[in-house]
Simulated assay, not measured.
Amino acid sequence: MAEISIIGSGHMARGLARAFLRAGRAVQILGRDGRRTRDLVESLGPGATGGITGAPLEGGLVFLAIPYAEVHNAVLELGDGLEGRVVVDVTNTVDVATFDGLLTPLGLSAAEQLAEMLRGRAEVVKAFNTVLAATLETGSVAGEHLDVFIAGDSEDAKEKVSALAAHAGMRPIDTGPLRRARELEAIMLTVYGLQVNPEHENFAWDTALRILP
C-alpha cells in the first residue's frame, strides 16, 4: 500500500516520485492518460504503482502535480476519496502564455481556492511549488540541498509534509498559514521570467530558491 498518492503523470509528478522513492516511500501515480502513466510507473521501478485518476487513493498524503486549470476537475473526480487526507497543492499559477501575470484572482492563492473547494473534508498544504521538477529528480543544485517552502493552517498536516521533505534530503521551511501561499505562488512569476529570458543563459529550469545559511 502506497503512503503517497500523486495526481498527474508529467515532469513534476516524476520529480516528486523520484524524490519520495529515494526516501524509501512507496508512491501511487494516478493520471488521466493511461499509457503515459504506465510508462512513468515502469520508469520509476520498485515502489511505484499506478492507475487512472478516480481510482481509489492509497496515500494519506495526496499531491496535486497537475496544472492549475485542472485542479477543479481533479477534485471532482477524486470526490470523497480525499476525505480526511492531507492534500498538497504544488501548482503554480503563472500565466505561461505571457509570463507576465498570475491566473488567480487578486489577493487569492490557488491553495486557498482548493481549501474552499474541499470545505474542510481534507487539510490543504502548499508546498513544493518553488522546487522545479528537474531539481527534484537530482535532489540538489550545485551540490546544495533543496529548500521546500510550506504553508498551511494545520500544524499536523504541515509536520507530515515537512517530515517527508526532510527524509527526501530537502530542508522544509514553514512559512506560516495557508494565506502565505499567495506569496509562494507570486514569487514564481519572477523565477519563471528568469528561466525564459534569453539574457539569462545560466537559467535552464534547473535552478533553486534557497534561504542562507
Score class of each variant (00 low, 15 high):
Met117His: 11
Pro105Phe: 11
Leu64His: 02
Leu57Val: 10
Val86Phe: 12
Val141Ile: 09
Ser109Arg: 06
Ala111Gln: 02
Arg85Ile: 06
Gly107Arg: 08
Leu106Asp: 15
Asn92Ser: 10
Val75Glu: 05
Ala65Glu: 08
Gly107Asp: 11
Val94Thr: 08
Phe99Ala: 07
Ala69Thr: 14
Pro105Glu: 12
Pro105Asp: 09
Tyr68Thr: 11
Gly81Thr: 08
Ala110Gly: 14
Ser140Lys: 11
Lys126Tyr: 04
Ile150Thr: 02
Asn92His: 06
Ala69Glu: 14
Gly143Cys: 12
Arg85Glu: 10
Pro67Thr: 01
Val94Leu: 12
Glu137His: 01
Ala110Val: 00
Gly54Ser: 07
Asp95Cys: 01
Glu144Cys: 11
Val148Asp: 10
Ala65Phe: 04
Leu61Thr: 04
Gly143Leu: 13
Ile52Cys: 02
Asp89Glu: 12
Ala134Trp: 00
Leu82Met: 07
Val86Ile: 15
Gly101Gln: 11
Met117Asp: 11
Gly139Met: 03
Thr130Gly: 09
Phe99Trp: 12
Gly60Glu: 15
Leu136Tyr: 05
Asp89Pro: 12
Gly84Lys: 06
Ile66Cys: 01
Asn129Gly: 00
Val90Ile: 10
Gly81Leu: 01
Val94Trp: 03
Ala134Lys: 15
Phe99Cys: 09
Thr53Glu: 07
Leu108His: 11
Thr138Arg: 14
Leu64Thr: 00
Gly50Asn: 09
Glu144Leu: 15
Leu82Phe: 02
Gly101Ser: 13
Thr91Lys: 09
Val71Asn: 01
Leu64Asp: 04
Leu103Gly: 00
Ala151Ser: 11
Val71Ala: 07
His72Pro: 02
Val90Leu: 06
Glu116Pro: 00
Val87His: 10
Asn92Ile: 03
Thr53Ser: 13
Glu70Gln: 15
Gly81Asp: 13
Arg85Gly: 09
Gly101Pro: 09
Leu114Tyr: 09
Ile150Met: 12
Asp147Cys: 07
Asp100Asn: 15
Arg85Phe: 03
Gly54Tyr: 05
His145Ala: 14
Val131Met: 11
Gly107Gln: 08
Gln113Lys: 12
Ser109Phe: 05
Leu102Asn: 10
Leu78Cys: 05
Tyr68Met: 13
Arg119Gln: 14
Ala151Glu: 08
Phe149Ser: 03
Asp147Pro: 00
Ile66Gly: 05
Met117Ile: 14
Leu61Asn: 06
Gly59Ala: 07
Ala127Leu: 03
Val131Pro: 12
Thr91His: 09
Glu58Gly: 13
Val141Lys: 06
Thr91Trp: 02
Leu103Ala: 06
Thr53Pro: 03
Leu102Tyr: 06
Ser140Tyr: 12
Lys126Leu: 08
